[in-house]
Amino acid sequence: MSKTSKTVLAGVLMVAFLAAAQSATALSVSGSTTVLPFGAVCAEEFNAVQSAIHVSVTGGGSGVGIKNVAEGNSDVAMASRHVKDSEKEAYPDEEFVEILVAYDAVCIAVSQAVYDAGVTDLSQEDVQAIYNGDITNWADLGGDDARIYVLGREVGSGTRDTFNEMVMGSAEAETPGVTTNHGSNAEIKTAITRSDKAIGYLGLNYVLDGDLVAIAFEGVSPSVETIKDGSYSLARDLIMVTYGEATPEARAFLEFVTGDDGQVIAEELGFVSIN
């Protein structure tokens, strides 16, 4: 084949590809930054095995995702918590439909220097005292004499709501001990690794790669095994949500996510399969 023929053929194939992409039905997924890596990889794989639906995935937090589906800006929400009663009351026209897609856990992580100094296990009372501002120095918990750099999540984060509910006693709990709030799990991870006196909370898959030190909570360290057997008390459901009945396109994607292929992806990313 001549060089000119090859160029023409490449152009024809590109036009055909663009036409196919333009004819695909767009499906928008948004929400939890905890679920985001899972949703993004599932979308990539789903888009690769069929051409009728093109899935795009963005973050923003659980609250943003739920608001997006209720207001028609997304087709599917990702959430690291269940839909709140206040959200149901704010959008009463349809019912939110929750689909369990994986299990996860809220992990308490500290800077490597804090861990090396001996702070490897905290009780619920200890963590409450840190986030309430009652304990402000690591020396009070068996560590070095250093002020605790306390990291929290911004309002709208499902991880924040879960932490507040499970650890602080209420999803609406105040945490006056927090030094800075961050918008995502990734930001919390970065802040902890760049500090020598930090503590923060984030999803399991953000600590399994070895870059962070997850401490034990009430004597139990977070792991796939302790989540499965129920011994780690900060385990949680990860869900995807539609507002009203899912469209055929959304249903197809959700079946992929909860099916064998999607659950393999969940496990590869450090989540616990629903199977």
Rank of each mutant, 00 (worst) to 15 (best):
K3I: 01
K3G: 01
T4P: 00
T7V: 08
F17L: 14
F17A: 14
A19Y: 05
S32E: 01
T33K: 01
T34R: 06
V35F: 10
L36H: 10
P37E: 05
G39I: 13
V41A: 07
C42T: 11
C42N: 15
A43W: 13
E45G: 07
V49K: 13
V49F: 07
S51C: 07
S51W: 03
I53E: 14
H54F: 06
V57I: 04
T58F: 11
G61Y: 13
V64C: 08
A70E: 01
E71H: 02
S74E: 08
D75L: 07
V76S: 09
H82V: 08
S86E: 15
K88F: 02
K88Y: 05
E89H: 02
P92I: 08
E95F: 12
L100Q: 08
L100R: 15
A102M: 06
Q112T: 10
V114A: 07
G118D: 00
V119G: 03
T120K: 10
L122E: 05
D126T: 00
V127G: 10
T136W: 06
G143E: 03
D145L: 09
A146G: 01
Y149H: 01
G152T: 08
G156L: 12
R160G: 02
D161W: 03
F163S: 07
V167C: 13
M168Y: 11
G169H: 07
G169T: 08
E172Q: 13
E172R: 04
A173E: 04
E174D: 12
G177R: 04
T180W: 02
N181W: 15
N185H: 06
E187L: 03
K189Q: 07
K189S: 09
I192M: 00
R194L: 00
S195P: 00
A198P: 01
G200N: 06
N205Y: 03
Y206K: 05
V207D: 05
V207P: 06
D209P: 08
G210V: 02
F217S: 10
E218C: 08
G219I: 10
E225P: 10
E225C: 09
E225F: 02
I227L: 13
I239R: 15
T242L: 04
A246E: 05
R251E: 14
A252N: 09
L254M: 14
L254S: 01
E255H: 07
T258A: 08
T258R: 11
D260S: 14
G262M: 11
I265T: 13
E268M: 04
E268L: 10
E268H: 12
G270T: 14
F271G: 03
